[in-house]
């Protein structure tokens, strides 16, 4: 058995997600990503089941593991009780731990997710927040969202809950004590280290492209790099 398979086996989502795959393709048939991306979860299950180090390394460095939407539509449908979505989660975690994620366009997007969703969690205690859904970056949200974004406090206050104030209610301000607890949980459970790993590997990749800067004595991927990974689509991903 290869080293990558051994590493995957340390992840409970891998051992729970793959028992024995009979290559029937049911997962691919129901998969919403397979309908549009050049993506076939059946093939991925087959590759990891075969266990070849070089084939798994190719997955970890390539585009395909990043196409899944983690909807878990495959989970109730697999006649063998596998969950390809869980296997994908384990592969993506390993791709980031090994640093191989920066080798693919879709993998490099992890920096954008870390700097948006990840930062929102640590700063605000929310994954998303009205102040962070910029209509310029979200044209699909339409003019009503722009109106909400521009007038958030007035719009939210109509429902009698304390928008961005202390106390309970929708989009309340999360108190500092609770935020500190969340940050300590991230520090203690590897969440902070995982964020730093994404930053470090992205900084190395950004430096190779001349898009790194110094920050706190360490190289850091610039905002330009972050914008590039957020928007770049060199084609060839979809069917």
């Amino acid at each position: 058995m290869g080293k990558y398979l051994d590493l995957l086996k340390e992840d409970i989502r891998f051992t729970e997600g793959l028992t024995a795959c009979m290559n029937c393709g049911m997962c691919t048939a129901v998969c919403p990503s397979a309908g549009f991306y050049d993506y076939d979860p059946r093939q991925i299950m087959d590759t990891v089941q075969n266990g070849s180090d070089s084939a798994i390394e190719e997955l970890l460095s390539g585009e395909r593991i990043w196409y899944c939407g983690e909807c878990m539509s495959c989970r109730p449908r697999c006649p063998r009780g596998n969950t390809p979505g869980y296997v994908i989660q384990a592969l993506r975690t390993l791709s980031q731990k090994t640093g191989l994620f920066v080798k693919s366009e879709k993998g490099r997007q992890q920096l954008a997710l870390k700097r948006t969703i990840g930062q929102n969690i640590l700063d605000l205690g929310y994954c998303i927040h009205p102040t962070r859904i910029d209509p310029e970056l979200h044209p699909e949200q339409g003019p009503v969202w722009r109106w909400i974004y521009d007038n958030a406090k007035d719009v939210f206050d109509r429902f009698g809950m304390g928008y961005d104030t202390d106390g309970s209610g929708a989009m309340r301000r999360i108190d500092e004590g609770s935020l500190d607890e969340i940050r300590r949980i991230f520090d203690l459970t590897g969440g902070t280290a995982f964020f730093e790993r994404i930053e470090e590997c992205s900084a190395e990749e950004a430096a190779r492209r001349g898009m790194a800067e110094e920050a706190d004595g360490r190289p850091r991927a610039t905002d330009e790099y972050m914008n590039e990974v957020f928007t770049a689509d060199s084609g060839g991903h979809t069917l």
Binding site: R92, Q110, L113, K114, I117, G190
Partner: peptide
């Protein structure tokens, strides 16, 4: 949302 974007580890 962070977990299903694969930036937040399972332990966290």
């Amino acid at each position: 949302i962070g977990y299903h974007s694969d930036i937040v580890p399972l332990e966290t």
